[in-house]
Design a protein around this nucleic acid. Structure first.
Lengths: 234, 234
DNA sequence: GGCGGGTAGTTTATCTGACAATCTGATGGT
DNA sequence: ACCATCAGATTGTCAGATAAACTACCCGCC
């Protein structure tokens, strides 16, 4: 995970140590940590160096700090990170084939769970269909992309497998540029595919839904990875 | 849940400003930013407060800093970001059944890719078999858990789908919470199952490998969760 | 006895000033 | 042209300090 550029910085070591401390002590959100001064002494660094590490962890929600009270364990928020992604030019281009393969695994993998839960909760179908209906009415690319992301996100959410949510969100951000290469003439095909997948899920035809979803996601491959290696139109 | 938000911290304002500067200037990865001293002057804060913001942005990859060279726009690599997924409360608090389901999706999902790559690179098989051989010789629970995690992690790695390495953290969380449920009497069964999966992959019998791996992972369910509450619709 | 207000102590937020470590570019020598 | 050295620039880390925010305890009043 870490790139070996330059020597290891104190603050990176400290951040790791703090995370380790949280894990070792089995701390939960809201639990107190030692004070900045105590941690600095414990790790043998200045208080300011300690703060550079804690501010980093605070930035993504892992820690919370309040004057007079001290440091507590927070709840890591992936959206604090993905919020800095978006259409960020610093976003490194990820291999589109890997992104597609990864999406296929995650999104087809959750379908059996979605189908099972749809049986008990028909509102899941209604919610997803509602998003798709709005997709049908989309007139701008931005709108279409936003709703497409929302549809796929909600599909994963419908599985109840929360560990996959944050990951799917990160995937979505890196995949966004490829969504934006979808031509308007292909939007309606996407809406039809979404609906077919939903209907199959509701009817308990999971294998068929998986095949359709795989095809739907794989449709990006020809355009992005396929023979035409040129830039996306637009 | 309502939170009493304290006053806006300087470093959060500065982080936003820096992000805005990058966008306004249209900077790309590798492009130079003003020095810490210049930015501190520009934003009217001390250099150390400026650093608290830059270290936070560095933590998530937006910035990179090197002595003598200065601040540059970083590359927000997906692997770096997904590397923080293990800190996600959704993982720490997930229902054990959810963790098992998540593992099944990821680990069976990568098998077609592992099998394809094994064809081109037999060393993959050798590496995984080597880990399994060491598993066979494990004598302590700690050792066994460490190697079991390594085996499953290497299996995901063998797929070449590096984003999914994020789910190595799922494995760590899983075994940290349920290590005591792994009975010594069942270790040899696990080693046999691993080997069977590998042999099937090498022989191109992907479906069979998937079934075996699913069974292998699902074996935890009875011990941890109790009687199976029903398989996903299929 | 209970409640509310005030204060002291604690802890984080931010600052000034300083030195150490690392990098880059210019210059000189071969 | 290439390599080595050095000066200057920039980040990394520290010590010492004050300001702002929070908590707990004590005291007074009803």
């Amino acid at each position: 995970m870490l790139e070996t550029i330059g020597r290891t910085r104190l603050r990176d070591v400290v951040a790791q140590r703090i995370q380790q401390y949280i894990a070792d002590e089995g701390l939960r959100p809201g639990d107190r940590l030692p004070t900045e001064g105590e941690l600095a002494t414990r790790f043998g660094v200045s208080r300011l160096s300690l703060r550079e590490a804690t501010k980093s962890l605070e930035f993504i929600g892992v820690l919370e700090a309040r004057p007079g009270r001290g440091l507590t364990v927070g709840r890591m928020r992936m959206e604090r990170i993905t919020g800095y992604l978006g259409l960020n030019p610093a976003l490194q281009e990820a291999d589109p084939a890997v992104l597609i393969d990864t999406r296929v695994i995650i999104e087809t993998g959750v379908l059996p769970h979605v189908a099972r839960r749809m049986k008990d909760d028909p509102a899941l179908y209604d919610g997803l269909s509602g998003i798709n209906a709005r997709l049908r009415d989309a007139r701008t690319l931005q709108r279409w992309v936003t709703l497409d992301i929302e549809f796929h996100r909600s599909l994963i959410e419908a599985s109840g497998l929360t560990p996959l949510m944050a990951f799917a969100d990160v995937l979505a951000v890196f995949f966004q540029r490829f969504r934006e290469s979808v031509r308007k003439a292909e939007w309606s095909g996407g809406v039809v595919a979404h609906q077919a997948i939903l209907d199959d899920l509701r009817a308990g035809r999971v294998s068929r839904a998986e095949t359709q979803l795989r095809t739907h996601i794989e449709s990006h491959r020809t355009r992005i990875v396929g023979p035409a290696k040129g830039e996306p139109a637009e």
